[in-house]
């Protein structure tokens, strides 16, 4: 859990660059993180990010694609469009959460 800077802000990140402190995340930071992986955040992106943040706060785990679809109500197809190729990991990165632990 090293200290690093993202857009001039000091935060704690893991070896890959994922934020490790839930409370260090801000929406402004999310925009920078998204831009770094070539994603421009629009309203549907925010809906997914906010669901992940809220769900993590309540359950202490990063939601999987299936959970975002069944509990968060965002169709799987849309998630693959919004966060291409690796939606679960990209969403977790932007939301300042660890990668999902579950298999499904």
């Amino acid at each position: 859990m090293a200290l690093a800077t993202i857009a001039g802000t000091q935060v704690h990140v893991d070896d890959e660059g994922f934020l490790t402190e839930y409370d260090e995340w801000t929406e402004g930071l999310a925009q920078v993180l998204a831009a770094q992986i070539a994603i421009e955040l629009t309203e549907p992106h925010w809906k997914a990010i906010h669901f992940l943040r809220e769900d993590f706060k309540q359950h202490g785990e990063t939601a999987t694609i299936r959970r975002i679809t069944t509990v968060g109500g965002i169709p799987t197809k849309d998630l693959f469009t919004l966060f291409p190729k690796q939606p679960a990991k990209k969403m977790a990165y932007i939301a300042g959460l660890p990668k999902p632990r579950g298999c499904v």
Binding site: L3, A4, V13, E16, Q36, I37, P84, K85, Y93
Partner: peptide
């Protein structure tokens, strides 16, 4: 000196 955070290597 605090270094910039690494960026995960997605899609690569």
């Amino acid at each position: 000196e605090v270094a910039p955070a690494p960026v995960p290597k997605f899609d690569q």
